[in-house]
Amino acid sequence: MQMRSWITPVAWVALLCALAALLPTMAPLFSWVEPGTDNLVYTRDSFWFLLQSHIWLVLVSATIGSLVAVSAGIFVTRPAGRDFLPLVSQIASIGQTVPPVAVLALAVPVMGFGEKPTFLALVLYGLLPILRNTLAGLGGINPTVLESAKGMGMSSAQVLFKVELPLAGRVILAGIRTSVTINIATAAIGSTIGARTLGDPVIAGLVNGNTAYVLQGAILIGLLALATDSLFEAIERAWGRAFSI
């Protein structure tokens, strides 16, 4: 019963890995879209390498982004940080209106080309949905629940870890899910400024007018996004079951 919700993400991940490994052998298939060329499969790097580098970039930036955003969200909802709450929640909602490409473009002059500016852009842009959801999740808890938690004799830390975070967890997870999904796409654009990602075949295909390359990159990016999204859905369900909310 509980294992069933993990079947979908596992299937997506399996399909993703299979394709990353087998795409080079599927050259005949791509001759349909790009007849008359010999370069039917992107070969400058292996798809495996690009997939790993892509995932690594997103994973590290999402981890840093989540830690920073959740800590900031917790800080501004404590008595000590409450003065910063209006400012931070404003930044969180305004920041969302800036497109990720703009963040990427702005990072280049500061840090030059390569992985670093992509990394910075991913962390910064990934912060916002998590921060917004952390604030919404913590702010959405019934105040009488917090009052009674305190009245029972819980310390501030106990209220946070036993009551607030479990209750807000699902909303925070949804924020991380949005952030990671967006960043999988944003990381691909990172290829334009020199990061090694699944965007490489797409960019190469666009530059050389090779639709097969574009397709190969796009299919893998799409699958990665779908696999990640369904993984998060399963995690959110498991969280809901664990705390029955």
Partner: peptide, 22 residues
């Protein structure tokens, strides 16, 4: 304050039960 409250049972109108616990 925590030790004080642990020795004072507290019940309120809106119950304030923890919704994620049995």
């Amino acid at each position: 304050p925590e030790a004080l409250r642990l020795n004072m049972g507290y019940a309120i109108q809106s119950t304030g039960l923890f919704p994620h616990w049995t």
